[in-house]
């Protein structure tokens, strides 16, 4: 087994295991923590795919940002005194069947398609390439993204404002 393969299997295992824990844990807070773990291992997967910039973004925005937001939301909505909010699940069997079926369908779909094994060699520095394309071809969506973030920020502030 090559290093690459070992890395892939390890990362995959961690990712899927933590994802399972996210959806199965009763304690919501633990669920968020497991989510942080799975997001981090996703960053690892990105690294394995030679996408360093993306791994960095993933870590910064997702693993740190989203987790922070989720924790704050839990803190706000949870009763601070008394039992922690636990969550039970509903329709577990049906959920299993549906997601299992979806998984099977997608995998079945992938089976019939020839997929490349070898990666093409990296011609350019990926980060540099991303930067260049982002500010030339995709500059408009880029700027719009900034506007979107501003709007989201304002919206969130408005929603979460204290009652007068």
């Amino acid at each position: 087994m090559t290093l690459e393969a070992i890395t892939f299997w390890a990362l995959g295992a961690v990712l899927l295991a933590s994802a399972l824990m996210v959806v199965l844990t009763k304690n919501l807070f633990h669920s968020v923590l497991y989510l942080a773990l799975s997001l981090t291992s996703t960053a690892g997967v990105f690294l394995a795919l030679d996408a360093e910039f993306l791994a960095f973004i993933q870590l910064l925005l997702y693993a740190v940002g989203v987790t922070t937001i989720a924790v704050i939301a839990i803190l706000v909505t949870e009763r601070l005194v008394g039992a922690r909010i636990t969550q039970t699940s509903r329709h577990i069997v049906t959920g299993l069947i549906v997601s299992g079926a979806l998984l099977a369908a997608v995998l079945g779909f992938l089976r019939g398609v020839p997929l490349p094994i070898e990666r093409p060699p990296l011609a350019v520095d990926v980060t540099r390439a991303i930067g260049q394309v982002l500010l030339t071809e995709f500059v408009l969506p880029f700027e719009l993204l900034a506007v979107l973030l501003l709007v989201g920020l304002l919206g969130a502030l408005y929603f979460a404002r204290p009652d007068e």
Partner: peptide, 14 residues
């Protein structure tokens, strides 16, 4: 991962 996420969406109460 997607299937696991879907499972979570469907079954979670919170």
């Amino acid at each position: 991962l997607f299937a696991i996420g879907l499972f979570g969406v469907i079954t979670r109460r919170n």
